[in-house]
Design a protein around this nucleic acid. Structure first.
Lengths: 194, 194
DNA sequence: CAAGTAAACGAACGGTCGTGCTAATTTGAA
DNA sequence: TTCAAATTAGCACGACCGTTCGTTTACTTG
């Protein structure tokens, strides 16, 4: 890897941390330069616009997400176990970033702001729901879930629970959050169980 | 009502709309002044600091929330009906503000930012969960829900569903969102039904 | 009508934002 | 070891931020 790519990766790592705390709009080039001990202009040259910095930071987080959530879950045995593994992996994902899941932050920031960020975000969101639904489908195939299970509906509720957990743990920073989330997923699974 | 209070209310109405779209940090005094056709300084005099503007905007939204969500729900008959009414009222609340529920936006903005806003927000959040739990408790008393229902757990899941709906409808702006949310609350209610 | 208060204004401050330039430095291959 | 290319730094810009100030206009009260 060339030196350029090397520092760029370091920049994006830091940018991801900042974005998770203050959002992608709050993410500032000056501050990022300070944290990476670079000059504003030197850092800026890597991206040539703030929007590019934001987009590439988002893309950077996608790789992280796949590595820490999707892939580990897929190594669990097919069926209900994999669904639960996915949920656990997501709970762990919250700990990777200091400020919690960047997608939650980003989604709120850009839901009313048309542009490339919003488009990218919507795509990621779709893919995430699709991933959940796919894993649920295998659970149906395995006979763990009822045949009339609607995988997309399950994905929606699954996703909603992660959002609820995120907000609960972040704002009320309660240990209860984990127990609440676990109880919820238990009930969700039980409800669709064959 | 004095003229001062009068314009202040008008300012807060506008501020609430802006905050729902770009957040409380994105809410800018200059822009707010422009939208209300006032001078920056004239508007600023009403609040004397940006934090005060934010706090009072938040408080303003609390009144709106009580009027459009809590109160209407409480006029529904006790029991399951009231729980459903609460959910419907919340769905309607999303339409009151151009940018969707301000609390969702605010929660994400301030979960990592200690200060008066975060404190106020956490309090509102607690009260909201408490309101849900209380209504659930009456449903248990009425015999609609099972005796072993955990009202706080129910409140958590209820709240999570509103968050899921919010994100789904805002980012994927899908008509599906309403159907998904309705189906979810149906399943939730069915699950706790006696 | 006069006096006094409340409300709104315009101009300016120091700061930070994103973004151009140009110059210096570092890197890696010939 | 040389040299072009890639990378970083320095400096400046216009725009907007929250905030302060002194002043002017609009109301209320005696």
């Amino acid at each position: 890897m060339s030196k350029g790519q090397d520092t760029k990766t370091a920049i994006l790592d830091e940018a991801l941390q900042i974005a998770s705390q203050v959002g992608f709009e709050g993410l500032t080039i000056g501050q990022l330069a300070e944290r990476t001990e670079m000059s504003k202009s030197g850092l800026f040259a890597h991206f040539r616009s703030k929007e590019q910095l934001q987009l590439q930071t988002l893309e950077h987080s996608r790789r992280w997400f796949i590595d820490t959530v999707i892939r580990p879950a897929l190594s669990a045995p097919r069926g209900e176990a994999r669904v639960r593994a996915l949920f656990d992996a997501w709970l762990g994902w919250e700990d990777v970033l200091q400020g919690g899941c960047v997608y939650v932050t980003a989604a709120v920031e850009y839901d009313d702001r048309p542009g490339a960020m919003r488009d990218a975000l919507a795509k990621h969101q779709q893919e995430w729901l699709e991933s959940i639904a796919t894993i649920v489908r295998t659970a149906v195939d395995e006979g763990d879930f009822r045949d009339d299970t609607d995988p997309d509906q399950f994905a929606f509720e699954f996703h909603a629970l992660t959002l609820g957990f995120h907000q609960f743990v972040r704002l009320l920073d309660d240990d209860l959050a984990v127990r609440r989330a676990r109880a919820s997923i238990d009930r969700l699974v039980a409800c669709y169980h064959s």
